[in-house]
Design a protein around this nucleic acid. Structure first.
Lengths: 193, 193
DNA sequence: CAATATAATGAGTGAGTACTCAGTGAGCAG
DNA sequence: CTGCTCACTGAGTACTCACTCATTATATTG
């Protein structure tokens, strides 16, 4: 039985997480709990009614984000996707969350241990999907015979490099959107036999 | 005329910068001024006799580091180096400074604006040297015809990816040393025609 | 309509940290 | 030797923040 109170509580909690996502996207992870509360139209103390600590709030936020990403990346699993399709879907999803995702990787060192764990798990999930496709392409002899994990690392390195150096590459507009074609075509050209 | 006082002052200043390098290498850039002072065997206030602010200290530190790296990377300029030699020298130099360098890139978001500028300049210097060699190799048709800056970005992306994820790849031993051969051979294999 | 439970408030607290400044003593000039 | 200079000291200051808690307003229960 969901009373009015329960609903209210639930919705406030959601509001806090959503606001945190937005505030962190804009200001980075040194944004204060006070800012989040204010943006959410709540008192400062309200945060701690719903989350015992800031770390806890961050962990919940990243877990939800991870779940969302996993869902959106779900089409990567379909086995008859080409390499190019795979890369396109992957970038498409990242572009949708670019601001937040790029904060996550540029400021990873500030995040609590547990959050970094969650991120690492997400990454290995993606690796798994990628590796399937890469292996198939190697079998088909369309891709160079290089250890799959190295191909994966090269891809991640390239995309993260653009995200991490956004201020050099494209300070005002989203980097991944701007360089999507460069990134994809370079990578495809590199790995092809 | 260098009086005893002047010499003392100079040596203390040097001591502070050297200690900062070591402390930051070990603890990261959230190490406090108090820690640096203590490690250097000085009072807390001494730091601010030599540097008006922590930002200033960091800027001096990174400028010196940049100068050192540039010097050590100088052999990259020699024009008759092969691609592989180039990569080896580059990694050799980074390995020498791995702890500090990896702090620089993982915690870049914490560094003062000016420091990030200095880093960006260093990077474009390296890019310049690389691009010369890459262009020559493309002319010799030993390397795929891909825009030189994209080849450079792929290389930087790959090495930085290992440094940034050191805790996943190699929590206890230096990453670059451990994966040097993997990184070099993968990259060479990828770019070769 | 009480009586109780609880979501939310916001001024307050304590911990951490860059930076200050009056004081000290070793060097140095006259 | 005397008085001044200045590198250095370290307790103190100012400020930021995550987190607390007595209080308030509102919902729920009987």
């Amino acid at each position: 039985m969901s009373s009015k109170r329960q609903l209210q509580k639930e919705s406030t909690r959601k509001k806090i997480i959503e606001t945190a996502y937005l505030v962190y996207s804009e200001q980075g992870f040194n944004a204060t709990t006070a800012t989040i509360a204010k943006e959410a139209g709540l008192s400062h103390g309200a945060i701690f009614v719903h989350f015992p600590s800031l770390d806890e709030l961050m962990t919940c936020l990243i877990e939800e984000f991870g779940a969302t990403l996993t869902l959106e990346l779900h089409s990567l699993v379909e086995t008859n996707k080409s390499m190019e399709e795979l890369l396109r879907i992957y970038l498409e999803v990242l572009i949708k969350h670019e601001k937040f995702y790029s904060r996550l990787i540029t400021e990873r060192s500030r995040l609590p241990e547990e959050v970094r764990m969650t991120l690492a798990n997400l990454q290995s999930l993606i690796a798994h999907h990628f590796n399937n496709v890469i292996e198939r392409e190697i079998d088909k002899q369309t891709v160079k015979k290089i250890p799959v994990h190295m191909i994966f690392n090269t891809w991640m390195g390239l995309t993260h490099y653009y995200l991490l150096n956004k201020d050099l590459f494209s300070p005002d507009t989203p980097v991944l959107e701007r360089y999507r074609e460069d990134i994809i075509s370079t990578f495809l050209e590199l790995i092809k036999r």
